[in-house]
Amino acid sequence: MSYKPLDTTKTFLITGTAGFIGFYLSKKLLEKGCKVIGIDNINDYYDVNLKYARLEKLKLFENFKFIKGDISDKAMIMNAFEEYKPNIVVNLAAQAGVRYSIENPDIYIGSNIIGFFNILEACKYNPVEHLVYASSSSVYGSNKKVPFEESDFVDNPVSLYAATKKSNELMAHTYSHLYKIPATGLRFFTVYGPMGRPDMAYFDFANKYFAGEPIKIFNNGNFKNDLYRDFTYVDDIVEGIERLLSNPPEKKENAAAHKVFNIGNNSPEKLMAFIGTLEKALSNALGRKVEFEKIFEPLKAGDVPATYASTNRLQAAIDFKPSTSIEDGLQKFADWYVEYYKIK
């Protein structure tokens, strides 16, 4: 199926631009000559120095404009839309993390529900060509059928984070139907890579090792029924988003111009194999053997035993399927980590 290449004459508004995926997407669009308006509140959910380091790289581009603000601030969002008149909006700002949502529910409602509502309202009053927004593989909950397909039943979330992401899909569908806003939701599957999120397991494992601490593995030491995760390298995620940007769902009479896509590696890895590959990647980067001290604990509330993406719908729409192996992806992360933190 043919798809339209990226239209670099458009103005892109990207929320969460100092975040992991937001940074890489903004950087790629800026390198192609696009005008990017970035919004981020630089919250302290994880090390803000990493967020500022990403921002500094984006500020090197003349066609980048940054607004420090929270998407739950409706007036700020409305003003940004009115002033910059974006053609395409990518909402990546969200409070992330499954376990954090159990301890801090208020933050998730503010960012993921109210914030996204504000984005939809801004698109309603300032019509855009395409709204792309982050959903999550967590909407599949404890789905036993694999691989996960976009048509699967997803009304049984097992965390508040997952519930907010499912809500985003419903809200986007409604606004698309009522106000003819072409919208695309993206269910990301365990994104990793250099300059990633320190709260993600692979990054946390590296931090723990160099702090001389053991890593915690939440599978109860059950190697037979080890956790499976569809780890997806950040460059693959960004490639998928970029290809979708200039290809909004078609507007049809009496039907919402709204679609949802999985973006995952379509190749789940056992968590223990992933950990072994990370140990090897760090060993290569340092030139000495790295082996984590491991503590096994039961699965945490809100965690799911497996994530596995079907990418058939994405491939049919934009002729793309993520393909970076964990060996290549984790080596790039390990090399970056050792250099960034100046580890000898």
Results as ranks from 00 to 15, higher is better:
residue 205 F to W: 14
residue 117 F to V: 11
residue 72 S to K: 14
residue 105 P to H: 03
residue 314 L to D: 03
residue 71 I to C: 04
residue 239 E to Y: 04
residue 289 K to E: 15
residue 282 L to P: 01
residue 266 N to Y: 11
residue 197 R to T: 06
residue 87 N to G: 12
residue 233 Y to L: 12
residue 248 P to H: 06
residue 215 I to V: 12
residue 165 K to N: 10
residue 44 D to C: 07
residue 260 V to P: 02
residue 332 K to C: 11
residue 107 I to Q: 05
residue 191 V to Q: 01
residue 165 K to G: 03
residue 64 F to T: 03
residue 153 F to G: 04
residue 298 P to K: 11
residue 222 N to K: 09
residue 174 T to E: 07
residue 6 L to I: 13
residue 93 A to T: 05
residue 202 Y to T: 11
residue 319 D to K: 12
residue 306 A to P: 01
residue 161 Y to K: 02
residue 124 K to T: 11
residue 90 V to E: 04
residue 118 N to P: 04
residue 6 L to Q: 08
residue 27 K to A: 12
residue 119 I to Q: 07
residue 235 D to P: 03
residue 14 I to N: 07
residue 198 P to I: 05
residue 205 F to K: 02
residue 34 C to A: 14
residue 234 V to Q: 00
residue 23 F to A: 03
residue 129 E to I: 10
residue 35 K to T: 12
residue 180 K to Y: 09
residue 257 A to V: 03
residue 162 A to Q: 01
residue 248 P to A: 09
residue 67 I to W: 02
residue 79 N to S: 15
residue 193 G to L: 00
residue 172 A to Y: 02
residue 61 F to Q: 13
residue 250 E to I: 10
residue 121 E to A: 09
residue 152 D to R: 02
residue 58 L to M: 10
residue 222 N to H: 06
residue 60 L to C: 10
residue 189 F to D: 00
residue 108 Y to L: 03
residue 81 F to Q: 02
residue 26 S to I: 02
residue 152 D to N: 15
residue 68 K to A: 14
residue 317 A to S: 08
residue 79 N to D: 12
residue 69 G to A: 00
residue 324 T to M: 13
residue 244 L to V: 08
residue 142 S to G: 14
residue 176 S to G: 15
residue 333 F to L: 14
residue 188 F to G: 01
residue 192 Y to Q: 09
residue 80 A to Y: 01
residue 230 D to A: 08
residue 172 A to F: 00
residue 333 F to H: 08
residue 232 T to D: 06
residue 94 A to P: 00
residue 46 Y to I: 08
residue 99 R to G: 04
residue 215 I to N: 01
residue 223 F to E: 04
residue 98 V to F: 09
residue 106 D to Y: 12
residue 129 E to P: 07
residue 307 T to V: 14
residue 215 I to T: 10
residue 39 I to N: 00
residue 311 T to F: 04
residue 255 A to E: 15
residue 227 L to P: 00
residue 252 K to D: 10
residue 191 V to Y: 03
residue 194 P to S: 07
residue 309 A to R: 04
residue 82 E to N: 11
residue 327 E to K: 13
residue 154 V to D: 05
residue 273 A to W: 11
residue 323 S to E: 15
residue 18 A to F: 02
residue 154 V to M: 11
residue 286 L to S: 05
residue 305 P to N: 10
residue 143 N to V: 07
residue 78 M to R: 10
residue 236 D to P: 07
residue 12 F to L: 06
residue 203 F to L: 07
residue 213 E to N: 13
residue 41 N to A: 15
residue 12 F to A: 07
residue 319 D to L: 14
residue 235 D to R: 05
residue 110 G to E: 13
residue 322 P to V: 09
residue 301 A to G: 07
residue 68 K to T: 12
residue 87 N to V: 15
residue 170 L to T: 13
residue 259 K to I: 00
residue 327 E to G: 12
residue 334 A to V: 15
residue 89 V to N: 03
residue 101 S to V: 06
residue 243 R to K: 15
residue 200 M to S: 12
residue 12 F to D: 02
residue 209 Y to W: 11
residue 162 A to P: 01
residue 314 L to I: 08
